[in-house]
Structure formats: C-alpha cells, structure tokens
Nucleic acid binder design. Sequence first.
DNA 1: TTCGAATATTTTGAACTTGAAATATTAAAA
DNA 2: TTTTAATATTTCAAGTTCAAAATATTCGAA
Lengths: 151, 151
Amino acid sequence: MTAPDIDPLSKRRLKMWIRLLGVARAAESSLREYLRVEHGTTLPRFDVMAALYRRRDGATMSELSRMLLVSNGNATAVVDRLEKDGLVRRTASETDRRTVYVALTPEGLRQFERLAADHEREINALFSDLSEQDVEQVTALLKRMGKGDKA
Amino acid sequence: MTAPDIDPLSKRRLKMWIRLLGVARAAESSLREYLRVEHGTTLPRFDVMAALYRRRDGATMSELSRMLLVSNGNATAVVDRLEKDGLVRRTASETDRRTVYVALTPEGLRQFERLAADHEREINALFSDLSEQDVEQVTALLKRMGKGDKA
DNA sequence: TTCGAATATTTTGAACTTGAAATATTAAAA
DNA sequence: TTTTAATATTTCAAGTTCAAAATATTCGAA
C-alpha cells in the first residue's frame, strides 16, 4: 500500500529500530523480573538509586529527571516512595529555596550496592553471546547514535 | 607491557547496556512526542495497531501481548480504548469460546497507514547519522543479541 | 464421563509515566 | 521598585504497565 521506496536505507533504519526496541524491551523484562523476584524492587527504583549512586553528594530533582529521561512528575513520585521506605533523603537547598537535593541514605547505599553487583551479573548473562569485539562495536555505534539528541 | 585489565568484559557489557537503554529511551521519547503532537495518539496505541497491521486477518489477545512483550492485562486495556474509538474490532472465535480475535477496522487501517509513513520518516531522521554499513552492522549485532531469549 | 490441568482473557490493585497546571521562588527588565 | 519572565518542584488527571487473581473454557487422563 505504501508507495515504492525511493530510499531503501529508510526501511533498513526502521528495521534496525524495531530490532533495537525489541532487544531493549526483552532485556528490560528480564531485569524487571529479576529485580522483583530476587530483590523485591522495581526497575524505576533501581534507576533512581543508580543515578543517586553516581551522584553521591546528591542531585536536584531536575537533574535526576534529566539523567533518567523521565518527566519531573515521575521523578517526584518514585522519590516519594523511596523516601517513605527510608532509602532516599530530601534536603532543602540553603541558597535557593526552590531547589531540593536528593541523596541515598546509608541504608539506601547499602541496598544499592547489594543490587548493583547482581544487576551487573544479570546483564552480563543476558549478553553473554557477544564477544569483546562485538561489545566494543555496538558501544561505539550506539555512542554515535546518541549524538544527535535534541530532546 | 600492556596494562592489567582493570575493566573486564562484564563491565563493558554493562556500559553497552546502559548506552543501549539510553538510545532506546531517547528515541522513544521523540516518537512519543511526535505521535502526540502530530497525530494525537500514543506509542502503545501505535504499537498495537502496527502489530495488527502485520496480522491483517486478526490476532488473538495472547498473540498480541506476546508480539508486543507486554502483559495480557495491558493488551486488554489498550485494545479496550482503541475499540471504543472504533479503530479496532473484537470478534469471538467460532471454534474456541475462550479466544477473541482483534483486527483493525477500515478506519483503523486508514489511520495506521497515515501514521506509518510519518513514523518511518521520523525514525529515519532520528538515525540519519548512520550510514548504510552502520545500519547493517547494528542490525546484525542486535539480531545476535535477541537470540538467547528465554522469556 | 468426570476430574484436574492447561489455556485465553478480563479484572483488579498498585506502581509508573506523561504532559499540563498550580505553587513557589528567583532573576531580569522596565 | 514593580512587573514579568524563567526556573524548580509538586500536584493532577488520564493513560500505561505489571503481576496476580478471577472467569471461562478446552483438553487430557483416569
């Protein structure tokens, strides 16, 4: 039904995207299940904690949602739940009363470190078919894909 | 002579995954916004319609959720809304009263064909930095990654 | 045939996600 | 100074997502 394609590359890019999405979703599914069954937590919670682990001194809500590519409201909701569970702490900024800093609590830090090792093992198993060269190649190509980000 | 490998393959696979997830999420964000602004629809709706387009004769709910890697309940909800909007039709199976077939209505088909062309253009633009060789390489590598799917 | 396992779908409750609107605050401009 | 624009976060409503439970039905085995 669609008109004959003058630019077959376009179709190939589409196929590539569909495959990329498929791989990402399948791996996410696996991870989600792993986190739920083995650690009683969820991927969004893990993502927030991982971001806060990288920013040990704390990050603002805005930084957090930018790092994770999620909306502000979303970040607020997940942080609310983590805070209620004592894994994360909000601190008001001294210099700008609009700003809130979020950081892992000691308990949050302990829990995340337990999670992180298992998470890496799980990822490693999921992609165990790829050789070192494959991994480097994919990483390099993905790096180039991420460059033109305007959003 | 060479430095000891302080960055084993496991860590590289993890980095690759983080980058893969980043690229996928950024592209999904773009698509989501595009579908919302230009077509007043959402990615899940598009995904369902795309699956039904590939299965023009209709698919069961189970097939649908398997194709899209989403839960049954999720598929039910999205199909409910599409049905309410007249884009999709449920039909009871003659031979198995448990089974329901879902298919695009003529209006759903028309709308999807309008969407699909634009969607392809959008994807093509998102990954315009990649040469044909790049695209083939990524596709091939992703194909290998998807092999070990046990879920 | 009847019972129990397996299959197909929907329902349910909670968490997640979004975009937009509402608040509060800061910074800049007139 | 006063007003306006920009920034940071939360709240809100609607939609998405999940896993588990509930229904309904089919199928296989005793």
